[in-house]
Nucleic acid binder design. Structure first.
Lengths: 113, 113
DNA sequence: GTTGCATGTAAGCAACTCCTTAATTAATGA
DNA sequence: TCATTAATTAAGGAGTTGCTTACATGCAAC
């Protein structure tokens, strides 16, 4: 029963690959099938499948099956934690900005850990 | 002459490890020697040295030698690009928040790339 | 049922990660 | 000069990543 890396590490690791970042960028346009997603890449389908698995493990995409197509859609929640970490480390002025961020997040009623 | 991964990938990859993230967090308190940095970790010095090399490669720290001590200090510039990427992908509400970010950044008169 | 399409899984391989211990470099100070 | 301290480099090993090709699964239309 080995325990994998923490959530934040999974997210940053998922983002540490240009192919995966582009997949996420393309998903901003809305849910997409794996085939459409794979098309622009000079890479086999299984390779894309594996990238999607990494993204799913990080919670950054959701896959739903309908007929023989799997539709992938973006999940941005994990990016909130990543963003919080990065902003927290971006110099003094940004620290003040974080406070504003948090204030606004309260107003928004955030549900993240 | 092999060409390594792009800068943004290097940054995210550097952040994808709890030890390295904690090193960066500790460096927020100001420049620190490798020895001080290594102390709280249950890990050999060479291991820390290698983590520092990863952080340096990503541009996240700077090392300066004085006497037999190497002092490490934080460089936040690479986080700006990482932040920009993450914010760009954080949903609609956050997009609006980005505008506020930019507005405030203008007020600040940002000097970053 | 059988064919065909969309996707996932399995197995294999080179390269990389993250740690270790041992040896090395470099500066200090008696 | 020699020992001490601070840190890095070297070598090696277990596990992971990122791709490949080949095979399996699952649904649909005939």
């Amino acid at each position: 029963m080995q325990q994998g890396p923490d959530e934040l590490s999974l997210v940053f690791q998922a983002l540490a690959d240009p192919t995966r970042r582009e997949i996420l960028s393309r998903l901003r346009g809305g849910p997409t099938t794996v085939g459409e997603l794979a098309e622009p890449f000079a890479m086999s389908r299984p390779a894309i499948s594996q990238h999607l698995k990494v993204l799913e493990r990080a919670g950054l995409i959701e896959r739903t099956a309908s007929a023989q197509w799997r539709t992938c859609s973006l999940r941005t929640e994990p990016l909130d934690e990543a963003s919080a970490w990065v902003e927290r480390h971006r110099g003094e002025w940004n620290a003040r900005f974080d406070q504003l961020d948090e204030r606004l997040r309260e107003m928004k009623g955030s549900t993240d850990a």
